[in-house]
Amino acid sequence: MERYEKTFLVLSAAVLVAFLVALAYATIAMHIELPGKAGVIPIKPGQNVAAAVLATAPFNHPGVTKIGPDQYQVAIVAQAWTYYPREIEVPAGARVTFVVTSVDVTHGFEIPGTRVNMMLIPGYISKLSYRFRKPGNYRIICHEYCGILHHTMTAVLRVK
């Protein structure tokens, strides 16, 4: 019996290790990055989050900025139940970095059909880069419940 028990354990462990190797491969070979620490919104004692966001660059001027050859930054402010700006235009093939934050509750930020998918948490800056190779209209959707009109929270990204 002892032998059977060991076989059990070894077999289970082997399956697991196989999965881990696959994951490591995906990370290294496919260069997939998770959103991480992209900064916080400095909030003074007693200050309201919305006021602090609007006083912090780049959220004081939300929109598209060219930050290098072929590189764009898109600053977006999320507020129940819209994004500022609501319509965004970027060139196809360029590296687009989304820098987003929320002024009130937790919101979501996803673009169906892409890897662009992150949570927006009050006080924190969420950041993610992506290259849109195919021109067309992409939809930005809030996919975290954020109050009674959550299902109307959307924006459009035009890739030209």
Partner: peptide
């Protein structure tokens, strides 16, 4: 996909998450 948590911690956790299988 949350901000404010270091990717290193997230990768480490991904390993542990597999362990629960």
């Amino acid at each position: 996909l949350d901000p404010g948590i270091s990717p290193t911690l997230k990768y480490f956790i991904a390993v542990l998450t597999f362990a629960i299988f």
